[in-house]
Structure formats: structure tokens, C-alpha cells
């Protein structure tokens, strides 16, 4: 059995980092949301008009809370993938990444075209979602390619699962 390409380890570490950054960012925004304060534009955060606009609370759930849940899920998936290298988990990461990316595109558009105000932490979140999207797709493609290669080689005893490196 060939060792798993090192690239997959690097990508999954990058996924964990991107998810952790997004999680911290969303947690901060959620805390800000619930502690309130008057609306303001600030030197560091951009404008509260973004996080306090109607667009920030679709269907009564603050976007920041959705962000916390999203990044927490991606973080757990990425950690599980790091251990198990499962194609199913990789596919879930790719799907989650696509959803997060689309949500970010929408949210950034709202800031630019509707609210005409940017929020630094929201942009940071869009950045980490985009990174998760790209990394998720890459990890999924690599995992599938790897699984197919081992199928073709007749090593399908671990069907749908990649061998983990470092388990000596």
C-alpha cells in the first residue's frame, strides 16, 4: 500500500486552521451580537450596521450563530478526516464548503450592494469560507482519486476509505 500523499495531510491541516479561524471570528461576532450596544462604525470592526441589519438575522437566527455552527461542524469534520481519511467525510467537507462559500458570496454582496458598509470580521469570515470551499473540493477530489486508484489496484479492502499515514 502506497503512503498517502503528503499533500492530503497539509490540506487537512489547512482546513482545520481555516475552520478554527472562522469559528473564532463567528464566536466573536455572535458575542457582539448578543451583548448589543448602540449601532456604530468603528475603526477596527467596520460598521455595526452590517451585523445589526435585517440581513444579519434571516428567519430569526443571527448569521453569527449560523456561522458558529457551520465552522464548528467543518472543524469536527476536518479533524475526523485527518484521522480517518474517509471519502464520505471528504465529500461532506466539499458540500459544506460549497454551502459556506455561497452564503459568503450572498453576505458580501449584501454588504457591498445593499448596506454599502463593510464589516472587517464578516470579510474575514468570507475569506475563511472561501478557503474551506477550495480546500474541501481539493481534499474530496484527492480522496476520490485515491480510492479509485486503490480500487483499480485491487486494494479495495478499505473500500471508500483512504489509508491513514503515521499509524505505525
Amino acid at each position: 500500500m502506497k503512503p498517502l500523499p503528503r499533500i492530503v495531510s497539509v490540506l487537512s491541516a489547512a482546513l482545520i486552521i481555516a475552520a478554527a479561524i472562522g469559528f473564532l471570528d463567528a464566536a466573536y461576532l455572535a458575542a457582539k451580537y448578543f451583548t448589543g450596544g448602540p449601532i456604530a462604525c468603528s475603526v477596527l470592526d467596520g460598521c455595526d450596521t452590517v451585523t445589526k441589519s435585517a440581513y444579519a438575522v434571516p428567519a430569526g437566527i443571527p448569521v453569527a450563530v449560523l456561522g458558529v455552527m457551520f465552522y464548528a461542524s467543518v472543524l469536527v469534520l476536518a479533524l475526523v478526516f485527518r484521522e480517518r481519511r474517509s471519502v464520505t467525510i471528504a465529500r461532506l467537507l466539499a458540500i459544506a464548503g460549497a454551502i459556506g462559500f455561497l452564503a459568503s458570496v450572498w453576505l458580501v454582496s449584501v454588504q457591498v450592494f445593499i448596506l454599502d458598509a463593510l464589516c472587517l470580521y464578516c470579510i474575514l469570515s468570507a475569506g475563511s469560507s472561501t478557503a474551506i470551499f477550495i480546500l474541501g473540493i481539493a481534499v474530496w477530489r484527492l480522496a476520490v482519486a485515491r480510492a479509485n486508484a486503490s480500487d483499480a489496484a485491487g486494494h479495495d479492502s478499505t473500500a471508500g476509505r483512504l489509508p491513514a499515514v503515521g499509524n505505525k
Binding site: A20, F23, L24, A27, Y28, A30, A31, K32, T35
Partner: peptide
Amino acid sequence: AAAGLVYLGI
């Protein structure tokens, strides 16, 4: 780290 950040933010 998130808990620390939330505390600082507040």
C-alpha cells in the same frame, strides 16, 4: 480561544 475572545470582545 473562542471563550477568551468572546470575553475580550465584551
